[in-house]
């Protein structure tokens, strides 16, 4: 009898420990969620051109500006290995002119997401000391990209490509020019930089 009464007592203790653990988890989780939402603004890696226009940061403050390289805005003047480059970073609403002297990452191109580290001059030009390229989450072979561009289904300078399901059937190398894919407006899937 003593054993029979002991078994539920042990179960109850385990039950209590489980409830205690779940309560601690709930408390910790909600505390973390509150802290994270409070610091949401401070956790961003870069600011957008619209934020920059709204904030007017002081010229000596170093900050990171992120967005897409505006199509047709890139002007390079090569001096040896390093390049003097001028371009504009846009988020679709506001564009900020950027100057940079140095080595650009391999992925830098028009329409590419970039993050520039630097200061905002009094004339509204952003002087970058470092430019990082942000690549999107799409992985696509070169031949497929060429085929999409050739067929006018996608312009890399304008936005991200159509969904993978529409070009997975394109073989590498492309031999079927008739592989019809539904035309997706490249601009409408523009990611929210």
């Amino acid at each position: 009898m003593a054993i029979k009464r002991g078994v539920p007592a042990i179960l109850k203790r385990k039950h209590r420990r489980l409830i205690l653990l779940l309560a601690c988890g709930l408390g910790l989780g909600s505390a973390t969620a509150l802290v994270l939402s409070a610091f949401r603004q401070n956790l961003v890696f870069f600011v957008l051109p619209s934020d920059l226009a709204a904030q007017h940061p002081s010229p000596e403050r170093t900050l990171r500006l992120g967005g897409l390289v505006e199509t047709g805005s890139v002007h390079r003047s090569t001096k040896g290995k390093e390049v003097d480059v001028r371009f504009r970073i846009t988020d679709g609403h506001t564009a900020v002119p950027v100057t940079f002297n140095g080595v650009l990452p391999d992925l830098f191109r028009e329409g590419q997401g970039v993050v520039a580290l630097g200061t905002l001059g009094a004339d509204g030009t952003f002087h970058a000391s470092e430019v990082l390229a942000k690549h999107d989450e799409t992985y696509m072979p070169k031949d497929v990209a060429e085929a999409l561009k050739r067929k006018g289904l996608w312009n890399p300078a304008k936005g991200p490509p159509p969904p993978a399901s529409t070009w997975n059937t394109l073989t590498v190398p492309v031999t079927t020019p008739a592989a019809a894919a539904p035309t997706a407006s490249a601009g409408e899937r523009q990611t929210g930089y």
Binding site: Y139, K142, V144, E146
Partner: peptide, 8 residues
């Protein structure tokens, strides 16, 4: 596997 169009 094929190389990526922009990452190589």
């Amino acid at each position: 596997a094929p190389a990526d169009w922009q990452q190589g």
